[in-house]
């Protein structure tokens, strides 16, 4: 295991990545899909309004990209801090 200060820095960076990812997670589902839907009624994605599309399809695509982006970012972080396997 890496030394104490390095592992603290690793954990702080990890938590930062998690918080940014959670912000995206919240924004696409609860934000665009539910809370902002009435305000964004005029914007259309094909035949659906933006909020409807995010609630039924769009948020799922964002979730997918989000998990793989998180995994890639973490793999890089693991290497930088020498904690990968």
């Amino acid at each position: 295991m890496a030394d104490k200060s390095s592992s603290n820095a690793y954990w702080a960076a990890n938590v930062r990545i998690i918080l940014i990812s959670l912000a995206v997670w919240f924004a696409c589902s609860f934000g665009l899909g539910i809370i902002l839907r009435p305000a964004l009624k005029g914007i259309m994605v094909g035949g659906a309004d933006l909020g409807f599309w995010f609630a039924q399809n769009g948020s799922i695509y964002v979730f997918l990209v989000l998990i793989f982006a998180y995994a890639a970012r973490m793999n890089k972080l693991d290497k930088e801090h020498g904690v990968d396997e």
Binding site: L22, S29, A55, Q56, S59, I60, F63, L66, I67
Partner: peptide, 13 residues
């Protein structure tokens, strides 16, 4: 739809 998929983001993170 959002609930049963968004849970995987929480699992992964």
């Amino acid at each position: 739809l959002m609930g049963w998929t968004g849970g995987y983001v929480l699992l992964a993170l």
